[in-house]
Amino acid sequence: MTKAPSVNRREFALGSAAALAGLVAAPAIARAASKELRILTWEGYAEPDWVNPFKEATGADVSIVYTGSVDEMFAKMQGSKGADFDVVAFDTSSFKRYIDGSLIQPIDMGKVANAGNIIPEFKSVDAITRDSKQYGVPFAWGSLPLVYDATAFPQAPDSWSVMWDPQYAQQMIALDDANNSIVLAALLLGFPEPYNLSDDQFEQVKQKLIEQKKLLLTYYAGFDEGVKLFADNKLKLMFSMGEPQVAALKAKGVNAALSIPKEKAIGWLDCWVISAGAQNVDLANQWINACLDKKVGNLLSTKKSYGNTTDAEANKSIGMTYGDRLAWLLTPENFEKRVAVWNEVKAS
């Protein structure tokens, strides 16, 4: 697992814990005689609003298994070498291990007519391609932005350097998260590959994070904890876990807002992929095509508060117009090293 907040972004956006749910499936023998799409995904990505029209259009049954974490999802796929599912949704940081494990297959984009609906900033994503083959189709996205008290900052801070400004000492909190904290410092330092650092860059990142640690009130480990600390202590700045923390702070009476600084912010981008063990690739392509309908994109944003990849106006309606200013999550060069460096920062 390359990023701790993966589960939390869905839990706080949807108000749900990890669950295992789905449409009631027929026995294995009966399924073999019928057309069925088997989906492994996050809650909110396979809603009746678009599942039912898909079933009507294709005549297929749909079984849905929801996952609670990226590691749980990978274990389910690895356990059957992908044979238990046809389509899966996961973010850009996971593609390397799925491709290396031969768990997913390239997608023939010529069979996904609605790919033409994908808005420009999501048309070319390096993490989902290998050897000129495309393995994923972008579907939903969000970020880890800078959250601030708009009363204290009438003009939005435009640089992460504000969280290293001594005048705000003890008025800031940040994520207790190894990978994301290291990526943030790397972005601020201007390193072009924040997920692939040299030993010298690691040392610079460590010193930068130690410098910040002296100014923070504390680190926080969960969505609710961050919101509570910010509201209760009347804080001014936070390296946040995602856009929904703004709404949660507003609900507590905080004049909260978010900024995507000039150095960029960390972004997560979930994509639909086709399992290497898919029973019906054509049906899997039809599902991906259905999910790229602009109506689905609109619902994903207006009903579920995710950024979508096909309806720019729906993104605009919820204020998510900055997909081109995010550093999309990738698999880091050495996650264990990142954890070790982060522990050194916290122990300093």
Rank of each mutant, 00 (worst) to 15 (best):
F90V: 08
R31G: 07
F139L: 08
F54A: 05
D131L: 07
E72T: 10
S94Q: 15
A26F: 12
A115E: 11
P53L: 12
G110Q: 11
T129A: 09
V87T: 07
G59D: 09
Q78P: 07
A75H: 09
I99Y: 01
M77T: 01
R38A: 02
K81F: 11
K96D: 15
L23S: 12
A60R: 10
K111P: 05
D126T: 14
S69T: 14
G22V: 02
V88M: 13
T129K: 13
V24G: 08
E47T: 12
G59I: 08
F90T: 09
F85S: 00
S93G: 14
I39Q: 00
A32I: 12
A21E: 13
E72K: 05
K55R: 15
A113E: 13
N114Y: 09
G44P: 08
K76S: 12
W42S: 02
L37T: 02
S94V: 06
I39A: 01
D71E: 11
L103V: 05
M109T: 14
V125S: 02
S132E: 15
N117G: 06
T92G: 03
G136T: 04
A89P: 04
I107Q: 01
K35Q: 14
E47M: 11
W141K: 05
S34Q: 15
W50T: 00
S69L: 08
A17P: 11
F85T: 04
S80I: 00
V51E: 00
F90Q: 06
Y45W: 10
G136L: 04
I29M: 13
M73R: 04
I104C: 04
G79C: 06
E72I: 06
P138C: 06
M77N: 03
G22H: 02
